[in-house]
Amino acid sequence: MQDNATPSEAAFAAALLDPAAALPQAVKRGGQRRYAVYRNNVTVGLVRALEANFPAIRRLLGETYFTGLARTFAQAHPPASPLLFHYGEDFADVLAAEDDLAGYPYLADVARLEHLWRRAHHARDAKVLEPNSLSALDPETLMASRLRPHPACALLSSSYAVHAIFTASRGEGDAVPDAAQAQCVLLTRPHFDVEVRVISPETHAFLQALAARATLAEAAEQGFAANPRFALAAAIRLMVEAGAFQHKITQDPS
């Protein structure tokens, strides 16, 4: 304690996430169990936040293992923001690096999908691209057109059956027969419901290019590069139906 008059916040904070740390000096004697209330509130609160944010991972790991892992994660990666529905952005990386989980390499991508799902759920509202606004354009203008991704739109490409595992683990699908089957996923939220779709790798390439502000021509090129049999019309229909892009079409590169 530097200042005699005011106990240091740093000392109080330092012991909150460290179960082995001594009681902060300024706390009145005999306060070990009392201070532990704060420690418990912080730890349990953050573990609960991870439970709420990663229900599929919790189901996949089982409650006991998940709670243990979540506790060490919370101690090593406490949140920086009080917007707890975004907490755990790096949880996927920790799952990927965990030796014990090496036999379950799909877990990290499932966690990434859960994180993207919540991002989409809380994303800004925006008007989605309407079919007529594309069909009104002449062919050359269409080629040079650029779209802006809807704030909720996200893409994920996984070497595992991430969508099937995610869906099954949220209690909505069947058991997954082959977890090692690669899947690409598109997340959108045209209104209130987050929609998660499996898409082909070439559609993923096409949408990723569009989302990065490529022209429709450049993006279609990416789709054909990924697969010469790229079904362009089907991909355009899917992106419109899913509400992946915003209403406004531009021809400017910015």
Binding site: T6, P7, E9, A10, F12, A13, L16, A26, Y38, N41, V42, G45, L46, A49, P78, P79, A80, S81, P82, L84
Partner: peptide, 15 residues
Amino acid sequence: STHDGVFYNDLLPVP
């Protein structure tokens, strides 16, 4: 509830 960029998700006491 926040110290040194960490949000502790609890209401911590003030001297």
